[in-house]
Computed example of a mutant assay.
Amino acid sequence: MKLIKLLLICVAMGAGASAMAQWQWIDKDGRKVFSDRPPGLDVPDKNILKRPKGYGGVPGAKTSGTGPALRDVAAPEEGEAPAEGAAQAAKPTAKVASGKDKELEAKKAAEDKAKADADKAAKEKQAAAKADNCKRAQQAKAMYDTGKAIRAPNEKGEMVFQNAEQRAAEIKRTDEAIFNNC
């Protein structure tokens, strides 16, 4: 008795699985589309990647179950307007029609804006540091231009007066800093 109940449950679950049939195709923009509805007639069969079981792959064919017909809407004759039902059946859902998810687009736009803001902040910080380096280099240059003796720490950390070579090297370094930052 338990075996029969288990078997019935398995059969019932198998019938539910066919209701979750999925279609996959590549739309006109080259994006993969996943849907539980068949693609519109504007999608060629070569672009359909996956069909649900029971679909023979022939346009106009029906599923093997009691479900609705898939891609069974005939194209209108030349000069004839499409029937209202045909127009509705040929249109996939709004999410699939655009090929994009509005929430995903919004999230991507927010990430792009955050990245742009971070780049802008980094550039502003770099510009501020460059301006500060320029100001310091100009102050050091002005100090060396006075001709006064300058004291600087030596290897031992003792403050000693700079000799002519050290002074010339520091003037050259400040000139390069002014050239690069100002």
Rank of each mutant, 00 (worst) to 15 (best):
Q126G: 00
V11S: 14
A69I: 01
C182H: 12
G79F: 01
V11D: 09
P92H: 08
A74W: 09
G65Y: 05
K172G: 02
Q88F: 11
P59D: 15
K95H: 03
N47S: 13
D119S: 05
Q139K: 15
A89Q: 11
L6H: 03
N154F: 09
A137E: 07
D42I: 10
I48L: 11
Q166C: 02
M1P: 09
D42P: 01
K123H: 01
Q22C: 06
F161Y: 12
A168C: 01
R31D: 02
D175W: 04
L6R: 06
I9Y: 08
V73T: 13
A127H: 07
N163T: 01
M143N: 11
K113W: 00
A15V: 10
L3T: 11
L104M: 08
D27F: 00
K100W: 02
A129H: 14
K32P: 00
E111D: 15
A116T: 03
G16V: 01
G79R: 07
K125D: 12
K148H: 09
E77I: 07
L8M: 13
C134Q: 07
A149F: 00
P76F: 12
D117K: 00
E78H: 06
A109H: 06
R51P: 04
A83K: 15
K120F: 05
D27P: 02
Q166R: 05
P59L: 15
R151T: 06
K125W: 07
I26R: 08
T146S: 08
A90M: 12
G30S: 00
